[in-house]
Design a protein around this nucleic acid. Structure first.
Length: 430
RNA sequence: GGAGGCGUCGCCUAGUCUGGUCUAUGGCGCCCGCCUGCUAAGCGGGUUUGGGGCUACAACCCCAUCGAGGGUUCAAAUCCCUCCGCCUCCGCCA
């Protein structure tokens, strides 16, 4: 949730931010009204409670006559206190709900508008020109079959559409990518994490995934658990209800987990291959840092993502995602999109978001700062960034580095992770 | 899954049977001050978190907070119920 103080002091700034996302400012008015109601209810309850405490103190010491009188008064008061407490509770819930309906404020540089209104920040590398090389590129489905790397038919048979098996060099490729990613992260000072992919509602809510993306989330039947769509969820909830020592920030984690997405509303989109699947594995960077450092850290996360894509020798571009496409938690988001030859366009491979204090407020995560001799607790920021999402990375590698005979050249940085292999050879003749 | 035990403001801990004197005890750690060649010791004070009032996001006052939520009661750390977590034993299992 956003900072209630900003809402109270600068409601117009919040309205402007909502407009940037293409949303009305109605939520601001609702939240302000709920805040006023809540404060009044709190004062009312506290006054009644204080009076009740005063009377209660007198009872044990009172003489029998006084006692009867006191009991009568305090009995009547008890009902009022109870009612006031209930009213306060309700007002608090209403206020929290109103506040939760407001997404994070978009940053200065974030373009206004929706999905199509992104700004291209840079293009790195040159998309390979297959016509100049004199052969028609095969798509990853075909290459996956030739290499014995991706088995989509059996994926569908066993689990349904949008499922796959990685086999042989496909499975090796995933392991190699996981190791390359984890090694890069560890060398950069990240703590390696294997995170649970089932979480309680609190973790889902806290990260904002039950707001707009609720339809995309798998729930476990008969249990209060959800399958995560990214390890951002368990990693954000990792420090929930904690007060961190500001001295230890930034806390940088590289978390591996499977990711599950229902892909509701994307029927008919990317139905071929493993571009869009219900399950994939991912190494995600997740950082807790100070609000001051959040923006600089966002740039660092982007730099680590770029470094990884460059190790894989992929052509890609970086976009600044528009406000309407940020998701509720982020105030800014950069996507790295790799060139997919057979699609003739750039496709999202990684994404990094600065969530400022939006998630930490929901999850009750703070830090203790010492300003000279004064100690204070205050909000901190979370950021996340994909280091390597296996399926799409495999697609980009296979398609980009394929050769006319159906073999695939292994980028130098990946070779040590594949037993020194320089080329993946087809096991089926093209 | 079964049986039992436990959960107190950083850590440890008293209090729970017998509800009000709990404004939660004491120790350790930490912070401030005093004392002191220096250090240690000693002495005094402070030390949960969230919120509200008033405001300068200070000081001060108030409310809540004894794992969480409900209940009983004029009154709950204390009595009752539900849930969560941890520990021990049994069963099952990677």
């Amino acid at each position: 949730m956003i900072d209630p103080r900003i809402l109270r002091d600068e409601p117009d700034r919040v309205r402007a931010a909502l407009a940037k996302r293409g949303l009305s400012g109605e939520a601001v008015d609702r939240a302000l009204a709920a805040d006023a109601t809540r404060r009044k209810a709190i004062v009312d309850f506290e006054e009644k409670r204080a009076e009740q405490k005063q009377l209660g103190k007198l009872i044990p010491k009172a003489s029998p006559d006084e006692k009867a009188d006191l009991l009568a008064r305090t009995k009547a008061l008890a009902a009022e206190v109870k009612a006031a407490e209930a009213a306060q509770g309700e007002a608090e819930v209403a206020w929290k709900a109103a506040l939760a309906s407001i997404p994070n404020l978009a940053s200065e540089h974030t373009p206004a508008g929706g999905e199509e209104d992104f700004v291209v920040l840079e293009e790195v590398g040159t998309p390979r020109d297959f016509s100049a090389e004199g052969f028609e590129p095969r798509d990853h489905v075909e290459l996956g079959k030739l290499l014995g790397a991706i088995d989509l038919e059996r994926g569908a048979k066993v689990s349904g559409s949008r499922f796959y098996f990685l086999t042989g060099v496909g499975a090796q490729l995933e392991r190699a990518l996981v190791n390359l990613a984890m090694d890069q992260a560890r060398e950069a000072g990240f703590t390696e994490v294997i995170a649970p992919s089932l979480v309680k509602p609190r973790a889902m809510e806290g990260t904002g995934f039950l707001d707009q993306a609720a339809d995309d989330v798998y729930r476990i039947e008969g249990e209060d658990l959800f399958l995560v769509g990214t390890s951002e969820v368990p990693m954000a909830a990792y420090h929930s209800d904690e007060i961190l020592d500001a001295e230890t920030l930034p806390l940088r984690y590289a978390a591996f987990s499977p990711c599950f997405r229902r892909e509701a509303g994307s029927h008919g989109k990317d139905t071929r291959g493993i571009i869009r699947v219900h399950w994939f594995d991912k190494v995600e960077m997740f950082v807790y840092t100070t609000l001051d450092q959040a923006e600089a850290e966002h740039q660092r996360l982007l730099a680590w993502e770029k470094a990884f894509l460059e190790k894989l020798e992929l052509a890609y571009r970086v976009i600044d995602v528009a406000a309407g496409d940020l998701g509720p938690s982020a105030n800014a988001k950069y996507d790295c999109e790799a060139w997919i030859p057979t699609q003739g366009k750039y496709r999202e491979l990684t994404s990094t978001s600065n969530c400022t204090d939006f998630q930490t407020r929901r999850l009750d995560i703070r830090a203790r700062f010492s300003d000279g001799e004064q100690q204070r607790t205050g909000p901190i920021a979370t950021l996340n960034g994909t280091l390597c999402a296996m399926t799409r990375t495999i697609v980009a590698i296979l398609e980009t580095h394929q050769q006319a005979d159906g073999s695939v050249r292994v980028p130098a940085a990946l070779q040590p992770y594949l037993g020194g292999r320089e080329v993946l050879e087809p096991i089926v003749k093209p």
